[in-house]
Write a protein that binds this DNA or RNA. Structure first.
Lengths: 276, 276
DNA sequence: CGCTCATTTGACAGAAATCAAAAGCGGTGG
DNA sequence: CCACCGCTTTTGATTTCTGTCAAATGAGCG
């Protein structure tokens, strides 16, 4: 919440907004940005906090600045269904509908750049180029959601786990990829907890753990800690995924690199990007 | 292909286009409609024919006038993954991208109202209100796709089958709902073949058949023919779905009735509508 | 150290895929 | 009219996988 500076052509109120070049803000011209600035505020949520409840009137929309947001359907018995995962720069909330059909929940500590929904809709009316960008982004998200459907339609859990690891590897190579001997190490990291990963893949933590241990025993990956792995054998990981690499890349949309976009996975958009 | 008459404020070239009030055409004003008419053509495809191939440059977009279209990912080994199902009035094709990530295939005999993609994109530039409607529709489709993710994340196949039947029942009550004794009969029909239904639910035809037979033995449904059933016990169907009715309605988006929209199911949009 | 929580491991029962075969159905041609 | 063929659907037997229950291990923390 520090470093907040009003800047006329930056949508977020930070001097240097980390997501402004990727979020919908990138379509905001100076006028639109000034207007967005006037109405938007930064909000923070602790991991586990609900941001927008399912079925509620959607009053707040905006961008994720940092952290991850789970999109879930919460059934009354408490067994959540994860239907999406939002990364920094992703748009959250539901515009043009009186009700959000899903529940937005902080999967980690989260900072949001939020704006009143009605104000944002009015802004879109006045700036068609922003609405256009939003349409383009939404079409990408739709493709991503369908790619995710393809992934979880895979027969075995192992296929889903291996495919997810492959996608995460291509998507989040945040660690230093070489060691002192100059050997490349592909590090894979779960951006959310095991429980959530299991829900995301439509399985249980136990089965997920078994599959990860199995991959480790096969020498496909090395387990660094419960949320970090090193990929040792990409070829065999693809074997376990049970699909050709090109099929996965297609499913994951990895071949569809957009110019300036951050890493992002999940039903939301684990596609669209390859930050390499 | 008969009955084709140019009409200045109808996007499709039929004297009375059956989908014009539901498709994106409904947002076309007289000028836009005339322009749409100038560029659009009716096309027919036989069941099984490919309409747009996966990975191809998307040259054609438009509306489905009659029949159903499967949205699939075709892996090289031939095992298709169904990621969507398009009904009459649904928009098909991918705009604002050079490549369609999915394969559009006729699931039945299909009639399309097609238009060159570039021409349609140019049309959108000139008519922001049409682009706005497309954004609203796309957001609905995204919700629907996420609802579908929730459905196929359900643990057991029986839950998925029962949920699908419930959705189809609420969606396609096309048959006469009462007999000569005045008793209401809820008829459920598979709009596509069993193989495709199995793919849609991420299972096999064998398991699908077993579950349907099981529902029949339990007296929940009566099998009229392999693709048509009568619902005998809605309460127990909901029990088998393993979710509360309201949850399913939420997942299916059945509570979200839009004014003038035809029935539609599937990852595409089995939601958004309740034609009652 | 003792507490809590997440992850792992084990044992087992249930569910679903697979393989295989039988039954139903529509069309074709004798 | 009937035999034959190809197709879809159904049924059966078997194996594999996965969820569930339960317990052990390990990490973080006051």
């Amino acid at each position: 919440m520090k470093e907040i500076v009003l800047s006329p052509n930056r949508c977020c109120k930070r001097k240097r907004c980390v997501v402004v070049d990727h979020a919908i803000c990138r379509a905001l011209g100076p006028d639109a940005a000034a207007e967005f600035d006037r109405y938007s505020h930064l909000h923070t949520f602790k991991s586990g906090q609900m941001i927008v409840g399912q079925g509620e009137d959607s009053v707040m929309v905006g961008n994720i600045v940092s952290g991850m947001v789970k999109l879930t359907i919460c059934t009354e018995e408490g067994n959540q269904q994860i239907v999406g995962l939002l990364y920094p720069s992703d748009f959250f909330g539901r515009i043009f509908s009186d009700r959000t059909r899903f529940c937005y929940e902080a999967a980690t500590d989260v900072t949001l750049c939020a704006i009143d929904r009605r104000n944002f809709e009015k802004l879109l009316e006045r700036y068609p180029e922003v609405e256009h960008q939003l349409l383009v982004d939404t079409l990408d998200e739709l493709d991503a959601a369908r790619g995710w459907i393809a992934l979880i339609n895979n027969r075995t859990t192992m296929q889903r786990v291996a495919t997810l690891l492959f996608i995460l590897m291509r998507r989040l190579p945040e660690e230093i990829p070489t060691d002192r001997q100059g050997i490349v190490h592909n590090i894979i990291r779960f951006p959310i907890g095991r429980r959530d990963v299991a829900d995301l893949l439509g399985t249980t933590p136990e089965t997920l753990s078994r599959n990860i241990q199995s991959l480790s025993r096969q020498g496909v990956i090395r387990i660094i800690d419960p949320n970090r792995f090193e990929l040792l054998d990409e070829t065999r990981l693809l074997d376990c995924a049970g699909e050709l690499e090109e099929d996965i890349e297609f499913i994951a949309g990895l071949t569809d690199q957009r110019p300036a976009s951050p890493p992002s996975i999940g039903p939301e958009h684990f596609d669209e990007r390859e930050s390499a």
